[in-house]
Design a protein around this nucleic acid. Structure first.
Lengths: 127, 127, 127, 127
DNA sequence: GTGGTCTAGACCACC
DNA sequence: GTGGTCTAGACCACT
């Protein structure tokens, strides 16, 4: 479930954080569900355990997961996180759209893109 | 033209960078046009010249301006920057919209937001 | 003869300088030959005359051309420039090749590239 | 490991950048390995911490390292950097060789230089 | 302790 | 005058 792209410019721990965040936000991982252990995930992804550890620590700091010493790391039950996440996305959406319109990209263009995305044909060829 | 908000959380040099980028992208500053000198802008904004220098340096690195030692800093004549900027914004738009729909934010909601933004009523109350 | 690519990241005056340097070094422009006037070249390339002027000034400073007030700009007769240019290129060649071999790119690979370049099939597809 | 020559014309921060880049590219520094802290390296090289900081900042921007506030600066795990580096060197090699041949430097001359470089006798006398 | 930011002031080369 | 570099020293947030 948690995937990493070695060829990505972003550091691996950041990719892991994003990956877990999405799984939590989209309910793909449910509250109190156990995450793979640091060592398990490390060997599975062929990555230094320290990298995983750092990612989990960061996720705990941000409230996405909680760790129980000697037992493992689990998904936190924090509904406010989701609404906060959506709020941030909407703000980003507004700002991006506003700047695009400033640069004379018509509203119609953006609406067509929304249509395409809704139909699930959103991909690299959809530029 | 170039403005800075001292109470902003973002570092001053970053605000200057964003400010100049927008001026260049929107053609408010034309190619080969001279930017205020480091010392001039520094005294105008009541800021240390080093901070301006840093902003100009990064802008040069990113291709928005070019500096000629002893003469000044000028707007770069790079038209690809603008199309690249729009391309990046559109990609951000798509990704954000897709993630929002994933989180069951309906297309209609986003379209209403586009309407509001188009009408220029996009502001803090629109969050 | 002098060409400029507006979509290039490099500033235009730099492209002009490089362009003229090559023409002089390769004897495409002979000593005492007249260069197009600032205004003429400016209108031909649809560029601000100041940009041309800056390029010519720089070329004069580096010894590639000389300007006669009221008459125009001419190619300098400086044979040492060419040997110096070749020397710089050879040093660059050596350093680049050494670093490539350091990174375990075999000599054979580089030799094949020389062959291809000699045959004139050196182009973008020749990667 | 990281060395600086105060008598070099190049700025110190640039020497540090080049130094670290080579260590990363040649795998002398492995992904997630910790670099000396800004203050540590500064005192070791008898240099102002700001200069180190600037070098690290630019290295982060270019993707060679990543910094975590409060923890330190680490080698980025980006394998594409290395292939990209080789690609850029090969392009430089091609362009330089092509220009040399244009200036009637024979292929044989360049091949002899490759031989010399391979045998490790590439040094100042090889100019 | 770590890096990130900013200020103040200096010297250089170039125009 | 211009930008480029470097130093010295300060404060911040984070671990």
């Amino acid at each position: 479930m948690i995937q990493v792209n070695y060829r990505d410019v972003r550091p691996i721990y950041e990719q892991i954080i994003d990956s877990v965040q999405k799984l939590v936000i989209t309910d793909a991982l449910l509250p109190d569900e156990k995450l793979p252990s640091v060592r398990e995930l490390a060997s599975k992804l062929a990555i230094n355990p320290n990298t995983i550890s750092r990612a989990y620590r960061e996720l705990e700091r941000e409230g996405y997961v909680y760790s129980v010493c000697g037992r493992g790391t689990f998904v936190a039950d924090n509904r406010t996180l989701k609404t906060e996440h959506v709020r941030a996305l909407l703000q980003n959406f507004d700002e991006t759209a506003a700047e695009l319109m400033d640069l004379s990209v018509g509203k119609e263009v953006l609406q067509k893109r929304l249509d395409r995305i809704e139909k699930g044909v959103w991909n690299d060829t959809g530029k």
